[in-house]
Design a protein around this nucleic acid. Sequence first.
DNA 1: CTGAAAGCGCTAACAG
DNA 2: CTGTTAGCGCTTTCAG
Lengths: 337, 337
Amino acid sequence: MAVRMKDIARDLGVSLMTVSKALRAHSDISEETRQRVLKRMRELDYQPDWIARSMVTRRTYLIGLVLPDLMHSFFAEVAMGVSRKFQPLGYQVVLSNTEEDPETEQRNVAVLMARKVDGLIIASAQHQGNPGMFRALDRGGIPYVLIDRLIPGVHANFVGVKDEEVGAIATEHLIAQGARRIAHIRGPSVSTARGRLRGYRRALARHGIKVREDYIVNGQFGDSGGYQAMLKLLDLNPRPDAVFCYNDPVAAGAIKAALEANVKVPQQIAIIGAGNVHYSDLLRVPLSTVDQSSSLIGERAAELLARCIESKTLAEPERIFIPPRLIVRDSSRRQEI
Amino acid sequence: MAVRMKDIARDLGVSLMTVSKALRAHSDISEETRQRVLKRMRELDYQPDWIARSMVTRRTYLIGLVLPDLMHSFFAEVAMGVSRKFQPLGYQVVLSNTEEDPETEQRNVAVLMARKVDGLIIASAQHQGNPGMFRALDRGGIPYVLIDRLIPGVHANFVGVKDEEVGAIATEHLIAQGARRIAHIRGPSVSTARGRLRGYRRALARHGIKVREDYIVNGQFGDSGGYQAMLKLLDLNPRPDAVFCYNDPVAAGAIKAALEANVKVPQQIAIIGAGNVHYSDLLRVPLSTVDQSSSLIGERAAELLARCIESKTLAEPERIFIPPRLIVRDSSRRQEI
DNA sequence: CTGAAAGCGCTAACAG
DNA sequence: CTGTTAGCGCTTTCAG
């Protein structure tokens, strides 16, 4: 069916090895035969069989990309960054969507290992720091880079932001805008959410503002969670005058809830998110946020992983932190009276 | 390093074949030895080598998913649908992001073919119906399913919506709301955009409304294109009283432009998009749209492709059309005076 | 510079 | 039911 090296060799009256070496520009082959072989390859539209090659070189040029939720544009952006960086290096990306389920994740990582991917990039959904999965990777000698979420107890390569910074920056900003009753819609139990919560507490403490535990409500990951959480906050007495939301989708839901309840944003309640998803500017009230350079995270992770793969020698894990950046839009801007 | 069948065989004092057959529950193996083998496999944490297996079975259990833009949530949703359907079938998805570039697409498809993927799902960015790529696929006998965008002259499996319907439904709706000067922000030169434009013309014709060519402007794919296009429309005299936008991101940009120019949506200009991206409800003005069941498209495409792969016999290409559904939100609702 | 031999880890086909 | 033989398409090693 498909044309093989053997065919070209027979065709040209040379040995299979000559063809193999010519293809890979192996040093000991005459330029002349080399051109002759390459020409014939083009004519016959020869495509080397990656599988057979992998079989012997033990390299698949496959990268596993494990993400919890492609619908969240942060991860979609990361995926683009990763794929953009790897494309020119000749690697393909195998996508695994875990839908935030730790077990699915573990299963998928096992499959990717059996597939012998050359490396993995993982935004892990393991809340309770299940180190088994990562030990398996270490044992298998497969390089991997964690992104976005640090896993407690796992000493691995990482690319992301310092989430405590994110929380602190957002909260400091709300304080600077004059807010004093600052609530937080927190995310689920992953490192990013915990970090942002810590940053929130730290900023309040720094300004001597007491943390009211009833001002911290759970919004999960998405807009519907943010909507529900905001409804609870709006019921409180006294009502918060500002809310720092775990991420932008949550913040978008929160804005929707506020407006539906006829609470003006930002006049009566200021809102800030995190992540700077690309439609933040288009929301009912353009959303203030903390940018974390999503596609840069993907690119950096790809570079780091590529280095690990090429160098073979698993050096000390590296941690790359991208500095977060405050972006002020209408949803949190102090209004002149 | 990794444990192989050979190791287990030696370990257990049986032949390699016994192990191989036991693993795959081949009929002629005694239940007893089978259990013995499986037990040892578990103990040694044996993982079959997919590469070696592929080499001989000629099946990779790899699916190529070729998309123009993961950032557009329509495609992200499709990707989730595809991956969700294939996961339980034991297939992995290799992602290729073409960034709307036909050449990148062609290159990537070639790579995926060399990788011997079992099948492909493609939302093609080939504007000018370059049939070479598809002929190569046919020649290679690799089953593939086109999604979202039909390619003129290519007779292949397809899953998507009838775009002319989408355009007609949206435009009819605007007419029903009382609009008469209806503009269209069109997309680039792909089948979806052309179809929607045809539907727009058809609906206007049906109601005896003359099409003004200066009411049709190009908005490309995204929100910035929609923003620019809307600026042009706002300058026209008489100004349109409604706009059907190629897709939701374009519509979001258009809304932004209108509001910034102090033109009220929908009171002074009604707007409708297409695609029902998941944040449509959260925009400045909740966006009316035509839903096309994105994740369903992904799932259906996956099912169809799986069938093609299993059946081996390449039957007549199938075309599956998902019926579009009008979703009315504030951006197009007739206002009571 | 060119080529023959050996083998990557597995399975299909057949023989015992 | 179990095992032997022969590859899949390529690269690595080493001899000409």
